[in-house]
Design a protein around this nucleic acid. Sequence first.
RNA 1: GCGCCUGUAGCUCAGCUGGAUAGAGCAACAGCCUUCUAAGCUGUGGGCCACAGGUUCGACUCCUGUCAGGCGCACCA
Length: 518
Amino acid sequence: MNFKLLLKEMIKESLEKNFDLKTDLIPITYPEVKEFGDYASTVALANSKVLKKSPKEIAEKIVSDLSKKDYFSRIDIAGPGYINFYLSDKVLEEFIKKSISEENYGESDYLKEKNIILEYVSANPTGPLHIGHGRWAAIGDSIANLLKMCGAKVHREFYINDAGNQINLLRQSVEAVKNGKPIPENGYHGSYIEDVAKMDGDPVLNLLEMQKKTLSKFRVKFDNYFSELTLHKNGEVEKTIEFLKKSGHCYELDGALWFKTTEFGDDKDRVLIKSDGEYTYFAVDIAYHKNKIERDFNTIINILGADHHGYVGRITAAIKIFAKEMNKNIESKILIGQLVSLFRNGEPVRMSKRTGEMITLEEVIDEIGSDAARYFLVMRKADTPLDFDIELAKKQTEENPVFYVQYAHARISGVLRNIEKPDFITNSIIDNPEARDIAIRIARYPEVCLDSAINMEPHRITQYLEDLSSAFHRFYNQHRIITEDKMLTSKRLAIILAVRNVLKNGLKLIGVEAPEKM
RNA sequence: GCGCCUGUAGCUCAGCUGGAUAGAGCAACAGCCUUCUAAGCUGUGGGCCACAGGUUCGACUCCUGUCAGGCGCACCA
């Protein structure tokens, strides 16, 4: 159950009944101050103008309606017309019970209509993954988990750019090293090229395997690796261009074929076939997106690095055109993640593949561990640039938020090891402020998951987990769990079991382990 | 020059889509372990929310402009 949405619904009904007002403008917040309740709404203030009634008057009607419901121990009207809701202990206990008994507590089906293809990482197979890829991998994987949890169908895909100039250059570079010849101009350098030269088989496949290995170490999985080459082989690029020509979205100019993306919001038209007869990268990429639509996804999400954000306009325009011509309703969203700058002891580390001085994602994982790396990369909003200092991350391991959260889980597991029969009861367990604080956070977990999924902001999960952990540590410090009083022990047990389940559940969402011991 | 993103405590960042007294963590200082994990807890100090206007009963949040930083502006991929 998502209480926030339920509350919204109840207020909505009340507004309709009393004022004949249909509105979705029903803001609900988590007050920062305890005295303002568990949930607060400014709905009366927000709608006072439209209704031409005083906020107080509106608030009173709502309070009178909602007081009849069973959920609240108290509803106050405060200040100019805030409504502050206090959940009853019974409701809170219900949440605790659910969070213990339901393994996938927090799950919902709000997004069940969505059939999503989520593309992320999609690194060129011309070198090892770096920390930037790590950020998209961590964020993408977490978003996929979140969307799934909220009922969406999610297909995770990695697009392999295994065709084109860069690939040719890579092959030539490897070949040159093999034969002891100088690497061609604009070719690939770096020690990894020498490693690849020593391996048998196709360097592109070998590099792809290396990337897959790193991703699996990072616990990031894809449902499909989609090869660009197949688009060429199946003639899909050609077909796509024919399709666009026929539907009148192309024109020729200066010996090249142009795509009128400006019709759908791009700032300039784009070339599909160059005057030398070659396809552009873009031509191939839209063939890929047409393919996505043909596979019947209704939501297309791409995660791109900020260095590719110039690409957003043309690709969204292309998707719109396809959707229109193919008579489909497609929702598309391109997430732009800001770049990661890697530092070591405050000194910037170059990430260029060409210099060979790059620190790979694999090295970072080996140095600080998957858990810390994933947590670090996911805990910041994607649209802020991230300075990632390896030494600092290592040094911070002792005071890292990830350990703080994991420690809470391990602590609970430790207590449970000291109990022979972990029987718990969920009646009248909220007998102190610390327990209540935990309970209200547990109740909010499904809401946080949904908000986090809809906004595609996994950092809200880490934020939440830290808050919940903090509430637990406070509880643990104040109250002994195991005592002679069996009844009391069973009550306390319910609280910590709930915390443990939610921590485990939340950590799983972001791909971090929940250790039994630390 | 144009476009996108960012600017909040000494540092790293949140701020729930316009509401109440702007919050965490780190760092600093002072306390708390004969009892379930002290990788923990409690307390203290620390703010012109980049700046200037505007909209509003109400702005960190929306609009305009300025400044600073990052990233883009190909018949490259």
